[in-house]
């Protein structure tokens, strides 16, 4: 399976995301923000970092990058798309996911290992996990507080679209401890913490993030 990993100016985690894709058994395909070609990929990952320097708002400028036009078009047709951290912010700014990510409630940039529980295993990115499974992966962000209005929150809860929640104390003020959500169709997933940094015990706090990358292979093979 070919999984595209997008590099915007200011992206940091594209190398780790590509490495995680390979560790999960798929081929990682580099996509450049200025590309008007998705190189026949089957799925796309928007990795973390500070695309376009986080100017204006996190993800606000990336949304209009040439490659994003194609990605939004394909995602609306059902292509699996995962946005991690800054990628999650890009998905919200692109209106592929509802809500917005705002400044952490205590204003501090966070960098810690965080336990999250996987709440929905029906997406192409979470099928390798079991419902309620707790995993330990890094969380590093300045603007990771998920906010939305009450009606949106009620529909996310009611439609089982919260795919992961923080376990324990709320690290950043996200509503209902939301760490990740999916769209109505279930193919687009946004996640604030970083599974790509937790794919082996040598370089991460665990290897439990790998499930996101084995899930996508399973989803494609099915």
């Amino acid at each position: 399976m070919r999984v595209g990993v997008v590099t915007f100016p200011g992206t940091l985690d594209d190398r780790d995301a590509a490495r995680a894709v390979r560790a999960g058994g798929s081929e990682a395909v580099e996509l450049w923000h200025g590309d008007a070609d998705l190189k026949n990929v089957d799925a796309v990952i928007l990795p973390g970092g500070f695309s376009y320097g986080d100017y204006l708002r996190c993800g606000a400028i990336s949304r209009f990058a040439p490659v994003m036009t194609l990605i939004i078009e394909q995602a609306n047709k059902g292509m699996p798309l995962l946005g991690i951290c800054n990628g999650f912010q890009v998905l919200c700014e692109s209106h592929l996911l509802p809500g917005a990510l705002t400044r952490n409630s205590d204003l501090h940039f966070l960098c810690k290992d965080q336990v999250i529980s996987i709440e929905n295993t029906n997406t192409p990115w979470t099928s390798s996990f079991s419902k309620g499974q707790e995993i330990l992966i890094p969380l590093k962000n300045g603007e990771g507080s998920f906010q939305c209005d009450d009606a949106t929150l009620a529909s996310l809860e009611g439609e089982d679209r919260i795919i992961a929640r923080y376990v324990g104390e709320n690290p950043n003020g996200s509503r209902n401890l939301i760490a990740g959500i999916t769209n109505v169709r279930g193919n687009v997933v946004g996640l604030m913490p970083h599974p790509e940094h937790a794919i082996d015990a040598l370089t991460g706090p665990s290897a439990e993030g790998l499930g996101f990358f084995t899930s996508i292979l399973n989803a494609m093979v099915k």
């Binding site: 705002t102 400044r103 906010q147 209005d149 003020g173």
Partner: peptide
């Protein structure tokens, strides 16, 4: 401006 119901940690600081 942030909507009134949105938490503004910078303003609070």
């Amino acid at each position: 401006m942030l909507k009134p119901e949105i938490l503004d940690p910078q303003g609070n600081a």
